[in-house]
């Protein structure tokens, strides 16, 4: 009975995930996207390397059906089910991801994503690449950002200006702005995406406990949130004294049991040195006395 229940639960669960899997719909306009370049053997080679690093741990080696047993099943990408998708569909799925598949938007540049597709297509003898379509000439907004810190408001003010059709400059409203701070391994986003108001301004509150360098300086940059690249944008950068001055001592500053010899705890140095000197002092004294025995002899 319990076994049956388990079976039912497994069935329902797999049904559920199947439904979930089917809900990963690719918008029609994205389906129609084609690669900007002709797939070349070089691209395929590069795609192979990228595939091995980023995809193989789940999808396995193409043609080997050795993909990881996950839910939903990742599947072998050289097989019919994956290959019947358009290039645009595959590109969209790689770009956006869907748990547990990571989104590769920020991991692989566009060209690399196309290289992976070129590699996957090399397993499909029936595949004929549609004619490449280079990116259309730019027709969208041209936005330039500037940034300063407003002491009275305690906020970072990002101002977006744009080049209007008549060539005049104007304030750009409705532009989504992201604020980043430079860290050792990359940029960290601060706060949420903000949209510029009618004055072309977006105000960012800066966390009060954010560590800066030892004088409190932080390198901040503002960027336009434009995932579909419909604008031409110029980001703004500034070094502002808005962080908490951080000058932590080196982790090896103090004397400790684990420090190098130069920084050994004083009591250990003392105890060790003294014990050795005292005991060996006696030893040398005894050796010296022993040698005296010879001189004290009768003849």
């Amino acid at each position: 009975m319990r076994f049956n229940k388990t079976l039912i639960i497994i069935f329902l669960f797999s049904l559920g995930t199947r439904v979930a899997a089917q809900t990963w719909v690719v918008p029609d306009d994205q389906k129609a996207v084609v690669a900007p370049l002709k797939f070349t053997p070089d691209m395929q080679k590069q795609g192979e390397q990228l595939y091995m690093k980023n995809c193989q741990s789940c999808h396995g080696l193409p043609g080997k059906d050795n993909w990881a047993k996950l839910t939903p099943p990742p599947g072998d990408l050289s097989k019919e089910k994956a290959q019947k998708q358009t290039d645009g569909e595959i590109f969209y799925r790689i770009t956006t991801g869907k748990v547990p598949m990571p989104e590769f938007r920020n991991i692989l540049p566009e060209d690399d994503r196309w290289s992976v597709i070129a590699y996957l297509r090399s397993f499909n003898p029936k595949y004929i690449q549609p004619n490449p379509v280079a990116k259309a000439a730019f027709t969208g907004r041209i936005v330039t950002l500037s940034m300063q810190y407003s002491e009275p408001m305690k906020k970072i003010v990002v101002t977006a200006s744009e080049q209007l059709k008549d060539g005049q400059a104007g304030l750009a409203s409705g532009v989504e702005i992201m604020l980043y701070v430079k860290r050792y391994f990359g940029k960290m986003q601060v706060g949420d995406v903000k949209t510029t108001n009618a004055k072309g301004q977006a105000l960012f509150e800066f966390p009060a406990d954010f560590p800066g360098n030892k004088d409190g300086y932080v390198e901040v940059s503002a960027m336009v949130n434009d995932p579909k690249s419909i604008m031409k944008t110029t980001p703004a950068n500034a070094t502002l004294a808005i962080g908490v001055p951080t000058d932590k001592p080196s982790l090896t500053a103090t004397r400790a049991m684990w420090s190098t010899r130069d920084k050994a705890p004083v009591w250990i140095l003392l105890t060790y040195t003294l014990s050795v000197i005292i005991v060996w002092g006696f030893i040398f004294y005894i050796i010296y006395s022993i040698l005296k025995i010879k001189r004290l002899s009768n003849g």
Binding site: Y285, I293, L296, S297
Partner: peptide, 23 residues
Amino acid sequence: LNFTDRPEQNKIINRSIRILLIL
């Protein structure tokens, strides 16, 4: 070491032994 059982020699030996025993 030219030991000839002189008291001075014995004294050195005995004293050294005592120090050694304590150390």
